[in-house]
Design a protein around this nucleic acid. Sequence first.
DNA 1: GCTTTCTTACTCGGATACCTACTGTCCGAGTGGAATAGG
DNA 2: CCTATTCCACTCGGACAGTAGGTATCCGAGTAAGAAAGC
Lengths: 157, 157
Amino acid sequence: MRMNEGVEWAAHVCVLLHWLDEGGLTPAPAARLAESYDLPAAYLGKQLQALARAGITESVAGRRGGVRLARPASRITLMDVVAAIDGPSDAFACTEIRQQGMNAERPRREFSKPCGIAHAMRGAELAWRRELAATSIADLADETGERVADRARAHFR
Amino acid sequence: MRMNEGVEWAAHVCVLLHWLDEGGLTPAPAARLAESYDLPAAYLGKQLQALARAGITESVAGRRGGVRLARPASRITLMDVVAAIDGPSDAFACTEIRQQGMNAERPRREFSKPCGIAHAMRGAELAWRRELAATSIADLADETGERVADRARAHFR
DNA sequence: GCTTTCTTACTCGGATACCTACTGTCCGAGTGGAATAGG
DNA sequence: CCTATTCCACTCGGACAGTAGGTATCCGAGTAAGAAAGC
């Protein structure tokens, strides 16, 4: 099980957009964001589109256009970013194999209670989501230090 | 992000092996285990090998051979099964893009503190693992009900 | 000076190709219990 | 009756093909700010 690499990119870009916002440097062109972290511009564009579809960023068309955060960074969580890029569906998908093979002839009502394995997996994923939802983009930006933020802003000025 | 389908198979098979153990019906041939849940025998064999490598099951060669749990089901957790099938590595892999692009020229010592995003992701995965480690195969078997266990044993007798 | 047109610099979305990892199958080698053959 | 051989039912491990989804690139369409041109 491996997470989409775009999640890392999107998270870093969101933090960067927050810093730029504080300096009045948004919207920032997608191509420059990609260049800031040496990422393939065309592919990062796809991830940015996904963020926009999820309402995390908004993009401004036309000259002097670009991307910016759609709401304060304190109200954007890592969970939001993961869900936008990696999809909202669970990693574990129960295929109800307990109803196959030796139990194929059994009446369906015997399986009305959800599969215990699926239930446990679901609980673990909920814990994971809860943790991700507890960290906001603003938290991440704050703990990085002002010097890095300043340098980023200088790079875009 | 999607989890290996074999994890579901392996978990169900472990529960089944626990039931069979209680009836003195182990070791059970891999082919029969596959047929019990209508799974492709050759591919399930691969997953069983992975379980054996992880020390969760042990396989008995030769005639009347098969597979059985290597230790009591109460001491096998879902986390063990997931790690055996899906690999022990984290889903999120930090590639340190913060050190690229506009920060490529910066001295390395500025990045001695771990990346905040990677840290948060790691914390969330730890919460996930903790939950999985809290559920044992015996727990799963118990909550399913004795009737299903009896039927499984009857199928192997 | 004001309005219109044009250019430019962006985003958006689809089409496409590649590559990795998961899914699934097959086969030969090894192993050990049970049946069989020989003394 | 006892021992040695053969057979059979298993597992193990590697090799291999197919497929889905993640990675990456490209291109045309749409949009808006600012410059240029015309009145």
